[in-house]
Simulated assay, not measured.
Amino acid sequence: MRLLLLEDDHILSETLELFLSKEGYQVDTALSVEEAEELTFNHTYDLYLLDINIPQGNGLDFLKSLRYAEDMTATIFITALTDINSMAEGFKLGAMDYIKKPFDPQELLIRIAAKFVTSTICYKHLEYDPESQIIRCHGEIVDLGNVQFKIFEKLLCQCGSVIKKEELYECLENISDTALRVAITKIKQKLNVDIKNIRGKGYILEKL
């Protein structure tokens, strides 16, 4: 895994880089938002570790700009802040976790490992966590409603396969072709995905 660490504290940055490197992670460090922006432009990462309070910048604003550019890379914030509003903003942007300073590097390692032992399903700009049954679109939670959620879950979990109409009917409260078409149209609009109707067979969410 390749990680980007944005941390303006030189000593902490060097300590975490050395520790994580010894654990097998490839770590790039940035001491400023400007350096981090250049690194994300030139490289692809599996995880961002971002401090919030950075001189001449802000980890939250940096992540917001990445999300705006449709960069949905997993993120953990490293911060001394205990401000609830900042935490709420971070999770709204799709942060996986917070770790508060001071902390033992071993704790960060545990949190990273825990977050990546997951069954999360990613599709384009979407992330679906089967455990929590949460769907995120561009990092923000989307509420589909019970019927639409059940239909989309079937299509996503069997991505690339045609799901027969009869199987999708099981998700409906009032069974009819019209009700199924309406539900799928709403899913497409809310999630901005292309669900194709295979005439006489069913529907498919095509593989990427």
Rank of each mutant, 00 (worst) to 15 (best):
E34D: 10
H43N: 15
E17H: 12
T82C: 03
L50D: 09
Q148W: 03
V117S: 14
R136T: 15
L156R: 03
R199Q: 08
L155S: 12
E89W: 10
R111N: 06
R199F: 02
T178H: 10
L3Q: 04
Q148I: 00
D97G: 06
L20Q: 00
S21Q: 08
Y123E: 00
N174T: 04
F91H: 03
E140G: 02
L18V: 14
K22W: 03
A113D: 15
L208Q: 00
I121G: 11
Q189E: 11
D51C: 08
T79F: 07
I198C: 04
G59R: 09
D46P: 05
K207G: 01
E206K: 09
Y169N: 12
E23H: 07
E206I: 14
S65L: 00
S86C: 00
N146G: 01
N192R: 03
P55V: 03
S86G: 02
D177N: 12
E34Q: 13
A113M: 08
N85F: 09
F62E: 08
V147F: 11
K196L: 15
C159P: 02
L66I: 05
H10I: 10
D143P: 01
L156M: 04
Y98H: 07
K188R: 06
L191Y: 12
A36P: 05
E166W: 03
I112P: 05
N42R: 12
I52Q: 05
L6K: 01
I54S: 07
L60A: 07
D51M: 07
I187T: 08
G24T: 13
L208T: 01
L168T: 04
A30I: 15
T82F: 00
L60H: 11
D97E: 11
S86T: 06
T118A: 05
P55G: 09
C159E: 13
Y25P: 01
L39D: 01
E153C: 04
T178L: 11
I175C: 02
N53T: 01
L208M: 07
C137T: 08
K207W: 03
L81P: 05
H138T: 02
A179T: 09
D51A: 10
S132N: 09
Q158I: 00
L109R: 04
K22F: 13
E35L: 12
N53H: 12
L18F: 15
P102A: 05
E167T: 04
I184F: 14
N53V: 00
